[in-house]
Nucleic acid binder design. Sequence first.
DNA 1: AAGGTCCCCAACCGCGGTTCT
DNA 2: GAGAACCGCGGTTGGGGACCT
Length: 402
Amino acid sequence: MGRHSCCHKQKLRKGLWSPEEDEKLLNHITKFGHGCWSSVPKLAGLQRCGKSCRLRWINYLRPDLKRGAFSPQEESLIIELHAVLGNRWSQIAAHLPGRTDNEIKNLWNSGIKKKLKKNGIDPNTHKPLSKVENSDQQKFHAISESNDVASVASTKPNLSQASSTSSSQSLRVIPSPELSFRRPGIADDGSFITCFQPTDMAGELCFQQLKCSTTMGLSASSDAALHHNWNWSSSDISPKQVHSALKPNKSSDNYYCNIDGDNSSQWSSIFNLQNDHIFENSPISWLLADCGRVDKETEIHPSVCDAEVAKWFEYLHHTPFVFNLSPSEASQMEQTDVTPSAGTCSVTGGSMISNCPHDQILQAPPGSDMYGKTLQAIAVSSGQNSSSSLEPVKHMFQDKKA
DNA sequence: AAGGTCCCCAACCGCGGTTCT
DNA sequence: GAGAACCGCGGTTGGGGACCT
């Protein structure tokens, strides 16, 4: 079948659009709408192909476009969405009103990518750029493939191993401030293998793996959802609880959680509340999604937070990170800010998770396009690429829908 | 001032998916 | 069901402005 590329048509202009062409296209679409794009150039009196007209309208002439530089909030949102969605620019753009996929793609390729690399993050995987020597890399991959900690983002986790002897294997890596950004994986039984957090052991940063069962976690009846009863388990570490959470800066949408365990390490994690959505920077967003509704106002207590996280926070948000707040400092911060209550965070119902892939699946009928694509997105983000490895994920969500 | 290089971003290109005939 | 046309997406290109030497 011969597919006609518009570029092969004769006598059609290419290249930059002139103001006159813009005006013709704008006038035509304003009056008649675009209808069938292939007929637009003829009706509008343009020597362009329909595809070119469509692109010009979408990327430049549309009245609802937001012009100008991206805000730090938009940039951080793009980074967070990219971690979940990858190069699905149109889906990312859907979360940024007034921005086009092309614009976001350009920003990513020309700006954000470099920033991430500069900060030691691989922009493709959102993992720390490893400077590990070859031998260490081989070890890394070997362990990954046998379901060690690194496997969460790159290979299919194996629950039996994770819950037995190897669940807290540590792996020496080049220290990096981004270690708190790990994504959860999904085990065969549908339980979550959570992110790895940096822990300081004898001066070395190590990865450690935790497991959170879907049957555990946040109680729907908890009256202080964000810092109550998030139980984590691994074979050699007793269940942990999030004992406090911190909103380091009132203009920020990010919160940090400290999870105390019996090995005296502090486990910091991060999640983000923005436009009523929680983004998958941490297993906590998955936990919240999994647990359904959280509808009580929640206190966030300032607490000590890890300097690595602070560094990352400052990079992402271009705002100073405040930590080690005393109660009086926290109180002062609360009084000087115009946004609601520094120490509280209002978390409301299902809308909170409406944009979480997990929740999209719960809302989408199995078999629908949304269902399949979202499953794939999750599988890919979890390093589960084969269709067979999707099965446990499917079952998990089907069970939850039921 | 001139030439070279870098980088941004608008636009192109090709592909896959969907709809129409 | 097959072929053609259309649509939308993501990767890539190249024009041109900014910056450097």
